[in-house]
Amino acid sequence: MVFIHDTRQSLRAAAHLVNTMPGRDGEDTLSTAADFEEYLRVNPYTGAIRRDETELAALRAIRPRLRRLWEVDRDAAVPLVNEMLRDGHALPRLVIHDGFDWHIHATSDDAPLATRVLVEAAMAFVDVIRADEYDRVRICSADDCDDVYVDYSKNGSKRYCDTGNCGNRMNVNAYRRRKARESA
């Protein structure tokens, strides 16, 4: 599965944003100006960024819409993606900047950040849907995690997210269960 740089970047940013929502631990990790700055550091966006409370609130408000893309199958994702593109008044155009080759922006640089994030995520999901790779859009399989990710592994066998050391934790739990059964 090969996606162009901007698609991978948008998918990664969307997953990161979704994973800031209160999960099983109940903690919202996008509630302060510092959280917002960290999100922007890890996921840089071009265009106007105000970095104020209104913009932070708007960004937080789109998280459930993005999360929904991980909760549905490919066919059910299509109307969600189309709605995001429509709501963002998407008008794709080719751009080149910051050392990146030609890629697509679908909103103006002065559109609100939340609109740009939503539309860029929708455009990335267009690529996933068209490539028939939607089965790689996943929710972590760990019993105690509901974070989202996109599986970029060659064989599509990734089961755990990278945010909470879930794979190692589940492997240790399985090992301990096996040892306990052997001892009994």
Results as ranks from 00 to 15, higher is better:
M170Y: 00
A184E: 15
D147S: 14
N82Y: 14
A77H: 09
D135F: 06
M84N: 06
S108T: 15
W70M: 04
A122C: 03
V117K: 00
S108G: 15
R67N: 11
M84T: 04
R169P: 02
D98P: 03
R74C: 11
A106R: 08
V18I: 13
D6V: 08
H5L: 07
T32N: 10
G167A: 13
A180I: 03
R138Y: 04
E182H: 10
F125I: 09
A122H: 04
P22E: 08
L66R: 06
L91T: 12
L113Y: 07
Q9F: 11
R181L: 09
P22V: 01
G26W: 14
A33T: 02
E182G: 09
G47C: 06
P22M: 00
R50A: 12
F3T: 08
M21R: 15
L113F: 10
L118R: 14
F3A: 02
G23H: 02
D135C: 05
Y134F: 15
G23P: 02
L40T: 01
L66M: 07
T107Y: 09
K179E: 15
T32C: 08
T20E: 00
V42C: 05
D135S: 15
P112T: 09
S183T: 07
F125Q: 15
D87G: 03
R8A: 10
Y152K: 07
E27M: 06
L91M: 13
E37L: 11
D147E: 09
G23Q: 09
D147V: 03
S141Q: 15
D87I: 06
D87A: 12
Y45F: 15
R50L: 12
